[in-house]
Each structure stands twice: as C-alpha cells, then as structure tokens.
C-alpha cells in the first residue's frame, strides 16, 4: 500500500485569487525516495503543509500511512518527521538540548533511537554544546534532520533541505538520505536543484501548482520529444543570438559551457548547421548529440504549459 496519497488536492489563497496547488494527485510507495522538483512558488511548500496537517486543503483528500490528514491529524503528527524549509529549531538551545527536547516531546529518548541518527550525529558531536543558532548552514541542516528522525518516523518530509547549501554538503546530505531509505523510511523531499532529481527514485515536476510530469527520472528524460544537441563556439553570446534567429532552430538555452539546442531535423542536419555557423564566422564549433537532462525536460514542459 502507498504510504502517502494525494487525491485532487486544491489549495488557494487570498479568497481564491492565488491557486497554489491545482488538482494535484500522486502516491508514494512504502520505502520510496520521492522528489518534488520545482521553483519557489510552484506549490511545494503548500503540499508539505497539507501533508503535515498544518494547512487544510480547499478540496481533495490526502493521507499518510492510511490516516486522513484532516480526521486523523493527531495520529499523523506522531508518525511523521518534518523538516520545514525555514530553519525551525530553537536557536538558543544547544545541539544536545534541541535533540533531547524533540525526543521528549515525542515520548522517547535519544538513546532509544540513537542507531537511526548515529551516522549523522557523529559529525555534530564535536559541537554538541554549541547553540543551534551559531551553527553553520550545513550543520544546522544535519541537526534539523536528526531532530526530525529522533522518534523513528515512518514517513520523512523534507522541504528544500539543500537550498542555499554548497555542493559538498549537498552531496553528503543525499548520501545520508540513501542510508535512511535503506532503513525502510519513506521519504518525500523537495528541491529547486534539477540535478538532484536524478538522485530520487521517482519525481514530480511542479510548476504553478500543477504537476507537469511524474515518473522515474530516466523515463522523464526518455519522453523528451526531440533530438537534443549541445553546441559551443568561440562567441557563446552571439551563437545564442544567431541560433535563436534561425527559423529551423526550435529552441536554444544556455547550459553552462554549451547551448542545448533542438531543431527541425527534417530540414537541418548537424553537418550543414556546422557549415552554416563556420560560414557566419564562428570558430571552434562543436556540435554533438546528447541525452537530455531533467532540466531540459523541465524547460520543455514549461514551454508547453505556457502554450496551453
């Protein structure tokens, strides 16, 4: 059975003026690592707040471990672990005091569930007497995760745990999540970083409160409708302008040191485009066929959503 289900959830603010969540349905299986991928304002946090029983939906139903988010909110609150996007521990309590506090609130002790947090807590232990407010970003994030885990939740809900965190800490954090998944904990995690999508088993791509696509990352990538090319040349700014003004080019977006390009392949081939570019004065032209990333798919789907 699914551990988390949402059926046609709608949430509006300002008397219906702002539609934050627009008819969203999905299920997360037991032990699954599921990602909500979307920018700020796409509805991620509203979904988290509905699932954690902190916000009532306008319509639709949702449940966790079979318990309804409205009727059974007290049971759900005992069973879940929640790490909000905003750091919400007590800044003026120490690392150890925060942990003891949350364990006590959930009627348990740090000792009882220590095995679950041990690998993370070891890194915090040298700072256990430091006030939470004085920790670095990465350490705060680890402490918040420990506090969310201390009562051994069945479902862990993490709202943008890696936002504003550097590449090294982000990699470590995803390693930790993999470990928790292996212990059978169901995890819902949201992120604005598209590269983290591949680390989830399944993902939902969210934009303006609606799910644009939901699947395994490799299946989402397979659904990209065009052949995708990566291109570079000596003048990347001009290359983008030249490509965008070419009627046979369908799309052109910068992706680091390459532009990702789709074209009308009936009319244009890699070879004759390269020739054209060299004739227009570009040097060191490289064109190669590549596999799309989740970000390519996200941009494509956003374009589709805007047309409809």
């Amino acid at each position: 059975m699914a551990d988390v289900t949402l059926n046609n959830i709608v949430k509006t603010y300002n008397k219906g003026e702002v539609k934050a969540v627009n008819n969203v349905s999905f299920e997360i299986n037991k032990g699954e690592l599921f990602g909500l991928i979307g920018a700020d304002g796409s509805g991620k946090t509203s979904i988290f707040r509905i699932l954690t029983t902190l916000l009532l939906p306008d319509s639709g139903t949702a449940s966790i471990n079979g318990f309804d988010v409205i009727k059974d909110y007290k049971t759900i609150r005992k069973n879940i672990g929640y790490m909000p996007g905003k750091f919400s521990l007590y800044q003026d309590l120490s690392v150890q005091e925060n942990l003891d506090f949350f364990a006590t609130i959930f009627n348990t002790t740090v000792k009882e569930n220590y095995d679950l947090i041990k690998d993370i807590y070891i890194q915090l232990e040298p700072f256990k007497t430091r006030k939470a407010g004085k920790l670095s970003g990465g350490m705060k994030q680890k402490l918040a995760l420990c506090c969310a885990l201390i009562h051994r939740p069945t479902v862990l809900l993490l709202d943008e745990p890696t936002t504003g965190v550097d590449v090294v800490s982000r990699k470590e954090f995803w390693e930790i999540l993999k470990g928790l998944k292996q212990q059978g904990i169901t995890i819902l995690v949201s992120t604005p970083y598209m590269d983290e999508a591949n680390l989830c088993e399944r993902i939902a791509l969210l934009q303006n409160g609606s799910i644009m696509s939901i699947d395994r990352p490799n299946n989402i990538v397979k659904q990209f409708p065009d052949t995708l090319f990566a291109m570079r040349a000596n003048d990347m700014g001009r290359l983008q302008n030249v490509l965008r003004s070419n009627k046979l080019i369908k799309s052109c977006f910068s992706f680091g040191d390459f532009h990702h390009v789709t074209m009308d392949s009936g009319e244009l081939t890699m070879d004759n485009l390269e020739k054209q570019l060299i004739e227009s004065g570009f040097q060191n032209v490289i064109i190669k066929e590549i596999t799309p990333t989740v970000e390519d798919c996200f941009i494509y789907l956003m374009g589709n959503a805007m047309e409809n």
């Binding site: 920018a39 504003g164 598209m194 977006f253 970000e295 941009i299 956003m302 374009g303």
Partner: peptide, 10 residues
C-alpha cells in the same frame, strides 16, 4: 537566482 525556475534563471 536561488529558487528561481530554469527559464527565468536564464
């Protein structure tokens, strides 16, 4: 550009 969608980011 933190938290901004991929099209707006560009």
């Amino acid at each position: 550009t933190g938290g901004v969608d991929p099209v707006t980011r560009r």
